[in-house]
Amino acid sequence: MKYSFRQLEVFLAAAHTENITRAAQRLSMSQSAASSALRDLEQQFDIQLFDRVGKRLQLNELGRLLRPAAEALLEQAQDLEQALSQHRTPGALTVGATLTIGNYLAVGIMSRYMSEQEGARVSLEVANTSQIVQQVLNFDLDIGLIEGELHHPELEIISWREDRLVAFCAPEHRLATLGSLDEQALRQTPWILREPGSGTRQTFERALHGVLPELDVRLELQHTEAIKRAVEAGLGVGCLSMVALRDAFRRGTLVPLAVPGRDFSRHFYFILHRSKYRSAGIRRWIELCREAPRIS
């Protein structure tokens, strides 16, 4: 072969960091060795993979075209090395999860994954749906777990499990004794919601299509716990996943509210780049997610 796996590692690290010094640090190499590896790769094929802007390396059209193939090739090589040196067991994973999944589901799955084999590691990135999608597209994550509906030609979207949002208020709220929100109450009550770009907000807006311009959105917060605390303090009504609300309903610190005629059901999904190699670790992670107990 005219190229080495080390050259591909430098290419991908430079694509990720956009800087040869940081790429070298990421690979525990000297800057000169990393620069030489990237230069040799380009010279061997008489190509240019980056546009050089000062010290910044920005992938050009050819670099963007070749990056998925290089990512997949290295993943397969690492999987083969692991199978040859030990058993065919899952290894390190970089997982992204939206806030509801990351805070209430992923940690338990991660614990089981790591307990199955000695030395396995999982890095968990928790962010909203749009951020997780971008990181999967950029190959910064091996797999994403999201709660928003999505269509993208470069991503494989796999249905995982059903979920539903629930409107809720504090026990002392005037709506608590009624137990439901009619169309008039929907418009008149102050709402405390997740931020735009989150899967929860997407489902909420889909369910309340037709009355959105009339809603009193009092606060938009990025964290489910902050929303729950604000609702407990009597600042308004919230709407979150049942996964995030189950314990609070059991304790009686929050009260569920029915919303007749509105569909708050949704799905959780796995997302993977279509060019991403499905390693043993990714396959086992998906299996463990599917085996996780349901929350009703």
Rank of each mutant, 00 (worst) to 15 (best):
S198I: 05
A244H: 09
P196T: 10
E225H: 14
F249V: 00
V217P: 04
R206M: 08
G234T: 03
Q188A: 14
S241R: 03
L245P: 02
C239L: 07
R206T: 02
A207Q: 02
L254F: 08
A248K: 08
E220G: 11
E214H: 14
G210V: 05
A185E: 07
H223V: 08
P256D: 03
V237T: 06
A185W: 07
H209C: 14
E225I: 05
A226D: 14
A248G: 07
T200M: 01
R251M: 12
M242W: 14
M242F: 15
K228M: 15
A248N: 11
T224R: 11
G261K: 04
R218T: 07
R187A: 10
S241V: 00
Q222C: 13
A226P: 05
G238Y: 07
T200V: 11
T253S: 15
A226R: 13
Q222L: 15
L235N: 10
R218I: 06
D216L: 08
R218P: 07
R262G: 05
Q184S: 13
G252H: 05
G252P: 03
V259R: 05
R229F: 09
R187F: 05
H209T: 10
T189G: 01
L215T: 02
A207D: 03
P196C: 05
A185C: 04
G197M: 04
G199Q: 01
R262F: 10
E195W: 08
V243N: 15
H209G: 12
I227S: 07
L219A: 08
